[in-house]
Nucleic acid binder design. Sequence first.
DNA 1: CCGGGAATGGCAACTTGTTGCCGATGCCGG
DNA 2: CCGGCATCGGCAACAAGTTGCCATTCCCGG
Lengths: 212, 212
Amino acid sequence: MSVDHVTVLRGEEELFGRTAHLFATASEITCAARDLNTWAATHRHPRDARQVSTPRLRKLFRPGVLLNPSTAQHVRWVSAQGAAVRITPDDINETIIIDRRFAILAGDLVDGRRDYGVVTEPTVVQNVASLFDAAWRSATDLAVYDAQHAELRALAPRVLELLASGCKDETAARTLGLGVRTYRRRVAELMTALGAESRFQAGARARDLGLI
Amino acid sequence: MSVDHVTVLRGEEELFGRTAHLFATASEITCAARDLNTWAATHRHPRDARQVSTPRLRKLFRPGVLLNPSTAQHVRWVSAQGAAVRITPDDINETIIIDRRFAILAGDLVDGRRDYGVVTEPTVVQNVASLFDAAWRSATDLAVYDAQHAELRALAPRVLELLASGCKDETAARTLGLGVRTYRRRVAELMTALGAESRFQAGARARDLGLI
DNA sequence: CCGGGAATGGCAACTTGTTGCCGATGCCGG
DNA sequence: CCGGCATCGGCAACAAGTTGCCATTCCCGG
């Protein structure tokens, strides 16, 4: 087994610099993103002139991206461009799959720079792709998800603010003019949206997504 | 009362550009910092040739900065340079006071850029300075604090990781080979260090400080 | 006007987290 | 060896958070 099938690139610039040709000629791009920091630049790539048709685009996001107005706007824009957008509460790794022939897997953040592994080994790519498909199937279409959570997003910012202030549920509920039960419903919904199982984790993720 | 005594500057660059002369000729610099993002650049300022003696430097930090290896290193470096460094669990606003004649107060973060108010009005500056002194007196010297919290820092990374993973205290304690009581002691200490009153807030701050 | 679905918030049972207390254990310095 | 001194961890009382249940209210389409 050769190691040549995996290339590690450092930072978005290098990644997109070295893989631009893949994007330009792709007919199917599939992308899972935890937040938008990672793949924010994707759409900026100029399409290759040789490119006849617009590639099929599938994007899978975590619910949290919709809570932040600016990332939510981006998601909507992507959707409006014709991409299929779905939302999943599952923990997903950041991944791009191109034509089921190349997989780009995001690694850890080091000094503000992220590593990316570009995989070309067919079997591995197929595996990654099928894992993605599973996640995709269980995810909710953006429009559907949107309809379900319209007013949650309206309330979420203030709930987050209060949670982040460290005050008790009692206090927070009064502040919002809500019953404690209802406030806690909001918190629970928020935690589900963030894929968090504890308040600590929710706090970390909320901060992670820039919601606070 | 004239407004001329307060100048608002936007961003660190403008701040340090416009106040460099103050730093260069200062004989006493006093500085309170919540994290290092704000005053990170402070020490980089070249000293003015006219400057005879090294200014007296007092720096007040929150405990959280010691939890992050890189910021902790910076704090230690500052201390080694001869600055007096103390740690306070109090909520402090980010402030620089120069020779008890100028006060620089950090404002909110807007679009990743922070506003700074430069105050020259003597009465206000004196007031700010005396508030700082009060906080300084009740703060703990870095060396002392260090000795007192050695074992917290040893475990903090793993505790944070477990908290961030969303698992229950029971599970986390077992994982670390600790009793639940002891694990919770660590969590409580951590929350104190982070200045958090709830686990949600702790999660947000931990993430904020890059501890997760 | 009426029936049904959705949101609300009180209640309560239960889980999780918080903290003081205290005996046990281990590590010094005398 | 012995008397502090600190840490550990079990216990327990309490506070905080989680969730199902359900009566009430409101809104909307029929």
